[in-house]
Each structure stands twice: as C-alpha cells, then as structure tokens.
Amino acid sequence: MNAIQIELNGRPHPADATTTLADLVAKLGLAGKSLAISINREVIKRSDWPQRRIEAADRIEIVHAIGGG
C-alpha cells in the first residue's frame, strides 16, 4: 500500500498509488456505466483505464449524462 491523496470531482479523495483508473471506477461502483474520465483535464480513453495509474495530486473528474437542453 502506498497511500496517496487525489482530487476526485473537486474533493480530496484517498487512493493507492497502485490503483488504476479501472480499479477506481470499480471501487466506486461505477463499472459498466456510461462515463467519461479525465486526469488533470486530459480525457482518458476507456480502453486506457486498465493501464492508467493514479498519481498523487491527480485531479480526476468522472462525468455522466444528465438532463439538459
């Protein structure tokens, strides 16, 4: 375990340095949902989630579709 702190959707969030984006999504109960993720405002393709490791101080945003005009 290598505990790190990230920012997830604007709030501090504890994580582990060995965690990938795919792990994070699964841990949050969001696997299989229609989402997009960015790290430090760079869009990360879904196909890259299993390889992409989270680093300390990463600003991660997870978004989905909601109603709008």
């Binding site: 959707n9 949050l28 997870i62 978004v63 989905h64 579709a65 109603g67 709008g68």
Partner: peptide, 20 residues
C-alpha cells in the same frame, strides 16, 4: 435529444438509473 455532462456524485446513489 440533447443531454448535458456533469460530475457523478461520488459515493451516492450508485444504483440510480441513468438518463441514457
């Protein structure tokens, strides 16, 4: 059909239905 994009509420209502 237009939709908008917003942050997911982390840790809340993960079982809620999705617009899509």
């Amino acid at each position: 059909v237009t939709v908008t994009v917003r942050r997911v509420n982390i840790g809340q209502h993960q079982d809620e239905p999705n617009l899509l």
